[in-house]
């Protein structure tokens, strides 16, 4: 399993993790080793095997459209690292919404 540092940088960007060059350099061989090991799943014949997403195979679990308990605004906002009035503050957003 080869993995380039550029690929690792790309993944770090997707995962939104700031990693410096040293961290990228250290991480690249570790991830390559783990992925090489994980890639052993590729040896299993899985034609016509559906991916498992839930052990019990439950279906149609819903709740009625009935109001439930809310949190007081302060309980949510109390944890905000930055607060603008009754809103959560963030620095300038550069990217557009998806």
């Amino acid at each position: 399993m080869s993995l380039s540092e550029d690929e690792v940088r790309h993944v770090a960007a997707l995962a939104r993790l700031a990693l410096d060059d040293d961290e990228i350099a250290a991480l690249t061989p570790q991830l390559a080793d783990i992925l090489a090991y994980a890639a052993e799943v590729g040896a299993v014949a899985t034609d016509d095997v559906a991916p498992m997403t839930h052990p019990l195979g439950l279906e149609d679990v819903t709740r009625p459209d009935v109001p439930g308990e809310r949190l007081p605004a302060d309980a949510v906002l109390a944890a905000a690292p930055d607060r603008v009035g009754d809103r959560f503050g963030v620095p300038r957003i550069v990217e557009e919404d998806a």
């Binding site: 939104r16 700031a18 944890a79 930055d82 963030v90 300038r92 550069v94």
Partner: peptide, 17 residues
């Protein structure tokens, strides 16, 4: 954004990362 630690940065994206 909502709770826990924040490391400040100039943009939201850089702050997240």
């Amino acid at each position: 954004v909502r709770y826990g630690r924040r490391v400040d940065a100039a943009t939201a994206e850089a702050m997240n990362a």
